[in-house]
Amino acid sequence: MSLLNKRKKPEPKAVLVESDRKVLEVIKSKKEMAIWSRDLKMETNLSDVVISKSLKNLLNSSLIKEVVHAQQKGRKHYIAAEFEPSKEVTGGSWYVNGDLDTAFIDQLKDLCLKIIRKLKVVTADGVYDFFKTNRLTNTDCTSQQISEILRSMVLDNMIIDVKSTGLGEYHSIPIGKLCYRCPPGDVNQGPKKGALVSIPCGVCPRIRECTPDGLISPTTCVYYNKWLDF
């Protein structure tokens, strides 16, 4: 090991007292799962003041680090410096600093849609291969991530999932394999508008209070007046 590397290693500047060591021990025992400061208090049986002081000390010594828990953003979590936070803590690959990386997700969705439009019918592997071959993103994404994106796009009705029939445009895909395609009609129009939501009553927040002769009634309804205001 070179001298340069040796120098890079964090050296504890302050001397650890008994309480610091106790806190560090508990944090280390949690490994990549991290620990909430309140739980730390429970497990160490130390007072708030002592714990705060120890945490400060340990942070300054770079022996521990603070992490944002994706599901409990308001709660301070600590992890030993040698561990990386687990998927449960970070929220998985779609989270950055505890926040859902919507920009990245939207970018991937957009690219997937373009690929499906271009290839007409394609499997999840097909989309992933297209990504890899054409290096469409700066960051690497896994085949699992692409599958997750496609699944959410199906739930959004941006694309539909169908099983290959092996006939016509499905001829290159094995029969029964799940593949993706654009829904018929204009994609930008979104899902078909239902009959009930085409009239004011379909989405009326006061529908339960509406009666023929009541204070809220179809004859006095403000939503109707607005709807029929030609």
């Binding site: 009705n157 009930l196 939501v197």
Partner: peptide, 22 residues
């Protein structure tokens, strides 16, 4: 289902629509 989904979309928004479809 499409009819009910359209009610959910209009009443509760896009995210609720995804959850409902799931």
């Amino acid at each position: 289902t499409l009819e009910v989904e359209s009610v959910v979309l209009k009443k509760y928004g896009r995210e609720a629509y995804r959850i409902f479809r799931l």
